[in-house]
Write a protein that binds this DNA or RNA. Structure first.
Lengths: 216, 216, 216, 216
DNA sequence: TATGAATGAGGTTTCATTCAT
DNA sequence: CATGAATGAAACCTCATTCAT
């Protein structure tokens, strides 16, 4: 039998705080990304969860607290994933291409992140500003890009004076706009292509634009 | 002083439906852009208006109806303004530069438009899809860009195969991202510059990127 | 040219008070009968009318006033129609049969009257009690039935001691219940017949029951 | 005085959902029966309750939902009570008399039921049709009457060919009309009798009419 | 730790009625 | 006589949050 607490397993009750919190966070991420912060419903989140509404308040204190936790987790995950790209001895142009493509694809496949960011911007980043240390954590992207720019400059494949924050801004603009404005853009300017073809096309545009902009 | 139209100002009752509607729409635009659709409050909008909450329902039927009217008006205004740019005999490269700069600046100075679009995207463009004729109206931008592309190609200053919808996508990405993601981006990646300097810098990035992307 | 007021005819504007009032009353009758008093909407009535909402208030003072006028008109019409039955030298049994059949059919073909009465009963006849002279007017039915009963008794085809008010009560019970409770009754106890067949059947029941009850 | 259940009375908070729901339903039944559906006020119902308006929505979802629950409960109660009449070895004529008298009296003493049904008919039985299983449940009356008719026919005290649904229709017509149209009828055709005397008289009419109609 | 019942404040919407022309 | 704009009060309903067990 060995160490199994009474009641565990039967009805979703876990008695595992970390698991419970993770479950709530995952559900809440998707829910807020789908409905926005004001449009999000604590009741609905609770229903989708394996636990009850009371647990949300127990662990996160309030709707705002829950949303902030969601946001923090989202940024941590995103930055962690980005760091997986390895720009060691790779050719700078190839590395740049990979970064743009990876960012573009990853955001497209995980649209809830970009949507959460968009939602947070509607609220003037007020929740983000409550999250301690989030700024420092995000600095990692810039370090990576700085490294790339330095190498590229040295080898003469990038023009001089590129700034990491500008490059990140441009890459983000494409990757985020692509996800976040998809609904209105594709409705207003429909293209006669499959979604896959269209995404591939837009990714090419993004890659080309970034690379042309970086080169001498 | 003179120049005061009969009944204007003071106590609100205008008996001028167009004025009343325009008043409501203007207030509502700013309010929804500020708080989102779900976060927007009909009560608050009414308070800022010269009229009462009842009139909002009299003219727009519901919160959704009001929001749709706001959205429609916003798109109409935006497209009308864009058409003011004249690409007649101008040098294509110069015209392209002006279009990007104009779009970039105009969106920055009227951030509520981009915010409304972002909000609408959170809701999967469900309201936009209710607005009859909005799609047709928006086509005008593409016509303009197509004209520009044709001239640029003929003169050999643009590379071949450019598509208007792609160009519009890129220009929008910069102009919209710049406005909509400003809060989170500038919080996470602060730059030690004045806002004006920063905007000027980003505009340069956008212009350069677009022009490099269009040229052969 | 000859006596035609400016604007007459063009847009429904009549300048004929009686016609206007009659128009409003007719529309309001059907509307209240359909939705009840509380469920009735002055706005909706106005829209169905050839005139405007203001006229309703001009002529009838209030929603209650309009409803009372509707009720009065309905009772007047109903009693007037009933008096058209002629019981002169007719055979009493035949006359009785005709009265029951006529009442039954007429109520069925003009269900809004019975519905208005049902609605008024929900409100404890409070509006009816405001209508001056309505009680006296309704007495006519009883006079007619009394005449019939007298003749029937004299000829020995009716049993002794019948009272007009009881006879009217019974006839009304069938005719009114048939109309007013149709929705719930036919839903709960559906019969596999055409509506016409069913009505004919119920009318037979009513006629048989009344006649058996009157005969010695 | 003893005999007071724990928590009963006083401050309202029961944490006993069934009791809370029953309390709401009872108050709502009387309220809707008194004012109709459109004329009924959720606020007023809540005030008469031991709980708050919020709980009405918690348990019943909407005003319509509450009304449907009221209607369902009313029909269930009515049919349950009717079944208490026992037609075992009783003389069919006596049993018939008892059924008519019981129905007549019971409806008169519980007028809110007939009023609810009248109200529901104003709304074309739209709520009733939402109630699952209500039709099946109501079938019980017909079974009972069929049994009675069969016995009566066999013994030759009823004429042949009687149908249960017709008999139920007739009994209902008297019992329901007596309650529902009381206000207008007694106002228009006042009788110089006590209410008790009048009811007794009408009950006699109903019994006589039904029995004469059933006999050969 | 966990649950379902309960809540007050506030949100959207509706309605009969009146006003200005 | 006639109209459409305008209104305040009150209606229905929702939401984040807390309580009792």
């Amino acid at each position: 039998m060995a160490r199994r607490k009474q009641g565990e397993g039967s009805s979703g009750r876990t008695n595992d705080p970390e698991r419970t919190k993770a479950d709530i966070l995952k559900v809440a991420s998707r829910h807020f990304a789908e409905h926005g912060f004001s449009g999000g419903r604590v009741d609905d989140i609770a229903k989708e969860t394996n636990t009850s509404k009371r647990m949300i308040y127990y662990y996160f204190g309030s709707k705002d607290g829950l949303y902030e936790a969601v946001l923090e987790r989202a940024y941590l995950d995103m930055r962690r994933i980005e760091l997986e790209i390895d720009i060691p001895n790779m050719d700078p142009l190839l590395a740049l291409r990979q970064i743009v493509e990876f960012t573009f694809d990853h955001q497209f496949r995980n649209p809830w992140f970009a949507r959460l960011v968009a939602i947070e911007n509607i609220h003037h980043a007020s929740h983000l500003k409550q999250i301690a240390g989030i700024r420092e954590h995000n600095g990692s992207v810039l370090f990576q890009l700085e490294k790339l720019i330095r190498i590229g400059e040295e080898r003469g494949v990038f023009r001089k004076g590129l700034k990491a924050v500008d490059l990140h801004w441009m890459i983000s603009a494409f990757a985020v706009f692509n996800v976040v404005n998809e609904s209105t853009f594709s409705f207003l300017f429909p293209v006669d292509e499959t979604v896959e073809k269209q995404q591939s096309n837009r990714r090419t545009i993004a890659v080309d634009a970034v690379m042309r902009w970086c080169q001498p």
